[in-house]
């Protein structure tokens, strides 16, 4: 199977197994969409159940959230550049942009952890109320995804360094890229429906 290279296609699409992996990953992202949609639905139902605890207005601060957003959006852009460099066969460019992406991602995770710690210090834990339970679990799930993505991307980068750009490593990098953009989209929804909406109401 792997022997049949179709060199007319981009590197990551050249083998049948690669094409299947990429399709499989798209379907996996479909499942992830449903997973996050369920979490969003849960949040939207529970977001007004404060049980005497703090509300969105008491907690959220636009500045930190804006920084988080900018970091993640930028990282999505740099991730796109990384894949672009990969398509040009530029291994160094790919790695450089990838590292920048991950640094931005790490910055995002750091800020988010910091935000959570602040909330907990203010007495807003996930045991306080249904609102906070759903808030922490929705954002925590996203944050965990980003962290896992960073770890995973590091693994893939090691492989690219060791093996160079082959159809297999290219596919792995490409899939990471898809994943990263997906998490970015999820964040846009979180930013809009959790933070903006929470601060407006």
């Amino acid at each position: 199977m792997s022997a049949n290279l179709n060199t007319a296609l981009p590197l990551e699409y050249q083998t049948e197994q690669n094409r299947m992996n990429i399709l499989g990953f798209w379907i996996f992202l479909g499942a992830e969409i449903i997973l996050f949609a369920t979490l969003f639905a849960t949040y939207s139902v529970l977001s007004t159940r404060f049980a005497g605890g703090p509300t969105q207005n008491d907690l959220f601060e636009i500045k930190g959230v804006m920084t988080e957003t900018i970091l993640l959006l930028t990282s999505s852009f740099t991730c796109g550049l990384a894949i672009y460099e990969m398509h040009r066969g530029n291994k160094k460019g790919l790695l450089t942009w990838m590292i920048i992406t991950l640094l931005l991602g790490a910055g995002f995770v750091g800020l988010e952890i910091n935000e959570f710690i602040t909330y907990v210090h203010e007495g807003a834990t996930m045991q306080t109320s249904a609102f906070l339970s759903s808030f922490f679990v929705l954002l925590g799930t996203h944050g965990l995804h980003v962290s896992m993505g960073i770890g995973w991307a590091v693994m893939v980068m090691i492989q690219i360094v060791k093996r160079g750009l082959t159809p297999v490593t290219a596919r792995k990098a490409f899939i990471i890229g898809l994943y990263w953009h997906f998490l970015d989209v999820v964040w846009i929804f979180i930013f809009t429906f959790v933070y903006l909406k929470g601060m407006v109401s």
Partner: peptide
């Protein structure tokens, strides 16, 4: 989470549903 970490998604207390 509700059972092991004390959250309030579905519980009677804490605004769960």
């Amino acid at each position: 989470f509700d059972r092991i970490f004390g959250t309030h998604f579905f519980t009677l207390g804490g605004g769960g549903l």
